[in-house]
């Protein structure tokens, strides 16, 4: 996570500064990326449900078609509508989260301005390929969500998302027996690609299935609030 890195680009903090104009700390921003259908939106929804009573949360979605993921979150009523914003991506969600983050930064700051101080902003990428990662100018940490049904060779193949994400989530573990996936093998491959970076196996279908991700988010948030603004 970039907070641990030396501050190579100090000007970034002028434009995505850890403090708000009034001097208080801004929300922690966590990006969620990963292939289509791996369960990013479901993970966001589950995180909102399990954390909304203890944290002030907002969500920015980056869809291929503008509002689909946002509409899902609205329908599921995981957050009040004013806390969910969709960013148009011109058919290129990875551009909006990595190469030109200006619209997402606008959206994040507008949410904070409109709804008051937030603890956590989740920025969800539209389903994209394995190379899509979030710019460190946009998010403080990122989660890459894959699923067992997408094939157990994804961790072995690697790619920037699998290799460098601050948390790799392997979702839909409940499906493993049906698709003939070897979870232990996936864990070994992930370890080989990611070294000490954490991997969480989840089944959102299970009771409190998002718990490993939630616990990781809580840790990041504790680390974020522990650093002086």
């Amino acid at each position: 996570m970039h907070l641990d890195h030396p501050d190579t680009y100090p000007h970034r903090h002028t434009y995505s500064a850890p403090t708000r104009p009034d001097g208080t700390r801004r929300a922690l921003r966590i990006g969620l990326g990963g292939p289509v259908g791996s369960g990013k939106t479901a993970t966001v929804a589950a995180l909102c449900r399990t954390l909304r009573d203890e944290l002030s949360i907002a969500v920015v979605t980056n869809d291929i078609y503008t509002r689909e993921d946002a509409e899902f979150l609205l329908r599921e009523a995981v957050l009040p509508p004013e806390r969910i914003t969709a960013v148009e991506t011109g058919a290129c969600p990875h551009t909006a989260i990595r190469d030109d983050i200006s619209a997402n930064l606008e959206a994040v700051e507008d949410l904070e301005e409109a709804t008051g101080p937030l603890d956590l902003v989740l920025v969800e990428s539209g389903g994209d390929n394995l190379t899509a990662t979030f710019s460190k100018g946009l998010v403080d940490a990122q989660i890459f969500v894959i699923d067992v049904a997408g094939g157990d060779d994804i961790p072995r193949k690697g790619g920037p998302g699998v290799t460098t994400a601050d948390l790799l989530v392997v979702n839909k573990t409940d499906l493993a027996p049906y698709v003939g996936v070897d979870l232990a093998g996936m864990a070994r491959d992930a370890k080989a690609q990611r070294g000490e970076l954490p991997v969480a196996f989840t089944s959102l279908a299970a009771e409190d299935g998002v718990a490993p991700v939630r616990d990781w988010v809580r840790e990041r948030l504790a680390a974020w609030t522990a650093t002086a603004p």
Binding site: V87, E88, T95, A96, D99, D100, A103
Partner: peptide, 8 residues
């Protein structure tokens, strides 16, 4: 590629 939002 100038990151000022034009791509959208």
């Amino acid at each position: 590629r100038f990151p000022a939002g034009g791509h959208a």
